[in-house]
Design a protein around this nucleic acid. Structure first.
Lengths: 235, 235
DNA sequence: CGCCCTTTTGAAGAAAATCAAGGGCAGTGG
DNA sequence: CCACTGCCCTTGATTTTCTTCAAAAGGGCG
């Protein structure tokens, strides 16, 4: 297990020199695996670590006063969280493993030592944070029609997982249950089911047994009005 | 016209020394006033400025493919935007003056020179950005019931404008039209009208002629399940 | 006074939630 | 090997929420 997904993500947004890449790759870390549906990081924790997802999916989970929940973002391999600790009291939401999930814990002091040596890395961190914000804004913008929102979510995840892939077909592991999709788009699981049926009927996307099949990426993107520009990945 | 609201906002989140305060206050800037409903900063602009709202309200406006719009955040006096320019190509959304609005333009190089002299200021900037993110997550979390969402918006704006105020009554200028409230909470203006009527009937809030009256802040907060903790203001 | 913009109110329709009941499938235990 | 059980997924019927369409009422300003 290595930090490779993390390094890859950062160099996808910024040009990194050989020495920057090796400094990042050499960061000491402890990998920890969390079982599906268990908390990877708890709300209120005040970590002195930078957490980096190495394998599997995690999600930011916010809880409503009535107990219902909402996913406000996905952490895919290479994504990180925890920098807030440099200025914040505590994490204001929990992070849950959406599939079996391996997370690296990097000591924040170590990490900042590396960051302080490189303007490029610092910029990559900022950019990651700004992209997160852009995704949140897109979730707000996009919450008009449930079928489209689900389609847009599929497009987002696909674009983030397969940034460089220019082919038009996809077939990949998608570990979310319908209930979790509902938590992410803000609709009930029953309604998710119907929207999935709609997408299936239209031949745009099929989700069976944790496997998502997109026969025509461009068609799905058109349906969802998805334009990957807001993710700011250089292709 | 001075940068006072900006300095006040930063020192509300972080302890600033006398010299840090004066360094910020001494930043050269050009104030520019934008009329209501006009763009303060256009989408796609690649500013070399930090923009700071001095007076009035501005809003981040995202536009959907069908032309309808959504406000994804408010910029109140003291709030800033434009740091994205340090690593991003271009602003991916527009900023509109929601009331007559005076914005200071500070040269980014000047600003960064000051930031680089002070860890505290750097932390304050990060914290502001993280709070923005927390607000976005709250908007997602909170979009269940229209009446509550409107109530929550009132609470958010009030908490941000009157951070230190511990009294329980409010009566302040609220320049948004019902249509803009709708753009912010994601419902039609017609429905905003009905939700306002509901809040009025319950005696929780009255919005007449751009003036918002909250007879009992605690009661409104309870109705909206509003807890200002996520805004991370030290009181 | 008349015009335009915003708010208000009504009625009908669409979208999604809720309530409720089956169905498939994997894992477990007899 | 088969029945049992639990977890999702699926489907139907009903109700609630919000949108859409439409029209009228108030208010500021030339």
């Amino acid at each position: 297990m290595s930090l490779q997904p993390f390094v890859a993500k950062l160099s996808a947004s910024v040009d990194l020199s050989q020495s920057e890449v090796s400094a990042l790759s050499a960061l000491p870390f402890i990998a920890k695996t969390t079982a599906q549906d268990r908390n990877a990081i708890s709300k209120g924790e005040r970590p002195t670590f930078l957490y980096v997802v190495l394998e599997g999916w995690a999600g930011r989970y916010d809880v409503r006063p009535d107990g219902s929940r909402r996913i406000t973002g996905f952490l895919l391999p290479g994504d990180f969280c925890g920098i807030h600790a440099t200025c914040y009291a505590a994490l204001d939401h929990g992070i849950t493993a959406l599939s079996t999930c391996t997370v690296a814990r990097i000591d924040l002091a170590d990490f900042q030592a590396v960051v302080s040596t490189s303007r490029s890395i610092e910029r990559a961190i900022w950019q990651a944070k700004l992209t997160e914000e852009a995704i949140l804004r897109m979730w707000l913008l996009n919450s008009v029609d449930a079928a489209r929102t689900v389609a847009h979510l599929f497009c987002e995840i696909d674009a983030r997982l397969h940034a460089g892939d220019s082919t038009n077909k996809r077939n990949f592991h998608f570990p979310l249950k319908q209930e979790q999709i509902g938590d992410a788009v803000g609709i009930t699981p029953v309604h998710v089911n119907r929207m999935l049926a709609t997408l299936r009927r239209k031949g745009l996307a099929t989700l069976v047994k944790r496997t998502l099949t997109i026969p025509d990426v461009q068609a799905l993107r058109k349906e969802a009005s998805f334009d990957p520009a807001y993710l700011h990945t250089r292709s």
